[in-house]
Design a protein around this nucleic acid. Structure first.
Lengths: 106, 106
DNA sequence: GGCTTGGTTTATTATTTAGTTATACACTAA
DNA sequence: TTAGTGTATAACTAAATAATAAACCAAGCC
């Protein structure tokens, strides 16, 4: 069973859950009410997100509050870094080109 | 058949292909030789990547060179933006806290 | 034309995935 | 203790995936 962060965010429902609990922790019930999803389905998604350490849970009485482990999202950001470098360098190349054109006009 | 960019990068082989052709365009055969993968398997992955506009192809003789549409990767980056905001704001809150502590020491 | 090579497509298979229903567990209040 | 509420788990189903083998298409070369 593959269980990595990229797999986790592949599902649109899970992405929505992530966004939902990014700012304030929520209970499974509250999350389920936000979609047309059953509590069980949400519960399963939360399990998957937990398994790759993307979310943490805190029990308060009989309710469980899930919250996003926002630091973990940096792993995706880190993978993106290499592409960011590419488009930034291309941009600066374009920048340089425009500069050259400007100078030729003078 | 769901076909979005998050689904596309969920597969580790596809992520490897993306990285591989990010800097220089490559033929399916060349890509397949980089992994222990058959040409057919690679061809399928390239199809999926093409379908969500992540890569483009250019025919040269009987060879097809695939290259990454790096601009498209910005869509992921854009989704990440909201989380980046969160961790940056948390960092500045921490910053502020450290500042306060420093002032108290004076 | 016929052969080889680079690439894609089709059919098939095994595995994973997402969801549902039903069952079980845990905490709280009466 | 019993009832009720919030969650999790188990069993099952339908659909999606990823991979393979075999067939197919097109470009270049003899």
């Amino acid at each position: 069973m593959r269980r990595d962060i990229f797999q986790a965010i592949a599902d649109p429902t899970r992405r929505a859950i992530i966004v939902l609990i990014a700012l304030q922790p929520m209970t499974p019930n509250a999350i389920a009410q936000h979609f047309d999803s059953t509590r069980q389905a949400v519960s399963k998604h939360l399990r998957i997100l937990t398994e790759c350490d993307l979310i943490t849970q805190e029990q308060k009485g009989r309710e469980i509050y899930y919250s996003l482990e926002v630091e973990k999202m940096k792993e995706i950001d880190h993978w993106m870094e290499q592409f960011r470098k590419i488009w930034e360098s291309r941009f600066s190349q374009l920048d340089h080109l425009l500069d050259t054109i400007k100078k030729q006009k003078k």
